[in-house]
Amino acid sequence: MLQTRLCNIRLKNPTILASGILGVTKESVDRIGKAGAGAVTLKSLCHEERKGFDNPTMFAYDGTFLNAVGLPGQGIDSAIRDFKRLDNLSVPVIGSIYGYRIEQFGQVAKKMASLNPSMIEVDISCPHMDYGKPYYADAGLTAKITKAVKKNAGRIPVSIKLSPNVYDIKEIAHAAEKSGANAITAINAASGMVIDIQARKPVLANKIGGVTGPALKPIAVRCVYEVYETVKIPIIGTGGVTYGKDAVEMIMAGATCVGIGSGIYYRGIGIFRKVCDEMTAWMKKNKVRNLNEIRGEGHK
C-alpha cells in the first residue's frame, strides 16, 4: 500500500529520515532502517571537518524544536573511510552534501557519488551558516550549484533542499529543476530564535537557529504546495511530520515522500513504523488503495 518510487529508487514506504537527525554513523543509519524508515538521509558533509557550534545546539519548546548545530561533520574524505560504501545497508541512503563555494559543492558531490548512495541531497538552505551570501535565496546561485553537483554526480539522482526563508520558493524550485535537479526537498528549517526570560539571553549558543517540529508544518505544507504547482520533479515534503495524518496532508500538498526529523523527539525511533501504520489505517478507512490516488489532491 505504501510502496513509493522516488526517481529510480524503490522505497518500501514514503517516510525518509531527514538530514541532521542521527544520521552520523553507518550503524545509526542501519538502526533507523530497521526501525522502519523507507530511506535515510545522512547528516550533511562538506569538504572539511567541522566541529559545529557550542551547546546549547538543540532545544524543544512547546510544539517547536529549535536548533543551531552549526553543520558539524567529519568531512567527506573522513566519511569515505568511515562509510566505505552506502549501497549495502538495510535501507536506501541519501547522502547530504554542501560546500562553502560553488565549486566545492561539485567536488563534495563527486566524492559522495563514489560511495554510491541512492540519491544526493544538496543542502543549500541551512538557515544559520557562517559563510557569505545564502545560496538558497538566489535562483541564479541555486542554478549554478545544481549544475555543479549534477556534473559530478554521475547517474545518481540529485535533490535540492530548499529554504522557506525566501520571498518566492517557486522561483528557486524552478531554477533547480531547469538546471537538472531530479527532485526537490522542501523544506529546511525556518529561521528563528528563543530567548530564555530567566537567563535573559537567547537559548542557543549561536543565538539564531532553525525552527522545526510541529510549528514548521503549515509553512512546509504551503511550500510543498507551491513547489508542486511549479515543477514536475518529485518532492520530499519535510517539516513537522509527526503523525500519519501529517504525512497524508503532505502528500495531498504534492509530496512524493515525507521527511521525518524532529518527530523522533516526540515519538522515538519507532515513529517511522507508527506513521506508516497510521497512514495505512487512514487509507483503509477512506478506501484509498495507493498514495498516487491522493498525491496533490489538495490542488483539485
Binding site: I21, L22, E27, S28, T57, P72, I264
Partner: peptide
Amino acid sequence: MACGFGICGKCMINDKI
C-alpha cells in the same frame, strides 16, 4: 553529547545512542 534526548546522533557508540 549535545541534545541529551537522542536526536543529534553525536554520542553514538556502535548502534547505541
